[in-house]
């Protein structure tokens, strides 16, 4: 068995770090997972209370179903579902945290999703409570969950056209300076790729959402919002 510890050999330059607690006794869990889902799970990684695997987005639903229904695994509770954006040209990840009485530690499943065509199967048939998680991820990141019955925006208004949690949505240094002046959501043209999702089953947009003639931001004297924004 590989060393489950995160490598922490190099001393911190400040020399002030204390050792972490020992990693969880994850042996039984890792063996059970290798036995049942060996071909799907990649890249084992642990820290003191989490066991983490990566899976393919296309396989995520089946993996989660096995994790929930298998008697030895019994991850009956979906603790969290979150989306992570790794930037333009990279990928999205949908990260699930699961809980089981039978194993110490949280189980984290990171499902990879193509950023150019972000689709992944919904898990609302496994956990009804994933509905708001998925609506939030759709609203904030623009990930389409295929088979979700209610994939609407949940926080922003229905005619909002950006995905604020994406990496290429940059906050201005001071919203009061921006052309939006606080009464209108900031929109960035490069994140307007809603038209691409039209074919998604169960997701349709009203015609107004497809129009591409809306101005991005007021350009005054050659200065754009992006030139005022500070890249992170």
């Amino acid at each position: 068995m590989a060393d489950l510890r995160r490598s922490r050999t190099a001393a911190h330059p400040l020399g002030r770090r204390r050792p972490l607690t020992t990693p969880v006794a994850a042996g039984a869990l890792v063996r059970a997972l290798a036995e049942r889902l060996g071909s799907d799970l990649r890249d084992l990684w642990t820290d003191e209370d989490t066991v983490e695997y990566q899976v393919d987005g296309a396989r995520a639903h089946d993996v989660l179903r096995t994790l929930r229904d298998d008697d030895d695994l019994a991850f009956f509770m979906l603790a969290d579902a979150a989306a992570v954006d790794y930037g333009p040209g990279e990928r999205f990840e949908v990260v699930y945290h699961l809980f089981s009485w039978k194993h110490p530690g949280w189980l984290r499943i990171r499902a990879q999703v193509d950023r150019a065509d972000p689709r992944i199967a919904t898990i609302t048939d496994l956990w009804e409570g994933a509905m708001f998680h998925e609506r939030e991820m759709y609203d904030m990141m623009g990930i389409v969950f295929e088979g979700n019955r209610d994939l609407r925006r949940i926080y922003m208004s229905p005619d909002y056209r950006s995905f604020p949690q994406r990496r290429d949505f940059v906050l201005p240094d001071d919203a009061a300076d921006s052309s939006a002046a606080g009464v209108r959501p900031l929109e960035r043209p490069e994140t307007w790729d809603l038209t691409r999702f039209n074919q998604a089953p169960g997701v349709t947009f009203s015609p107004s959402a497809q129009r591409d003639d809306a101005p991005g931001e007021a350009v005054t004297g050659g200065e754009t919002l992006s030139s005022k924004s500070r890249p992170r």
Binding site: R149, D150, P158, S179, R184, T204, S206
Partner: peptide
């Protein structure tokens, strides 16, 4: 610096029809 008003005038109907969105439903559940 605001976006243009949509082509159909009734889109900002707001509360006039209580609760009913003035656009085609987006999802099955809606």
């Amino acid at each position: 610096g605001l976006t243009p008003v949509r082509a159909s005038g009734g889109e900002y109907a707001g509360f006039e029809q209580v609760g009913i969105p003035d656009r085609p439903p987006q999802t099955e559940r809606e």
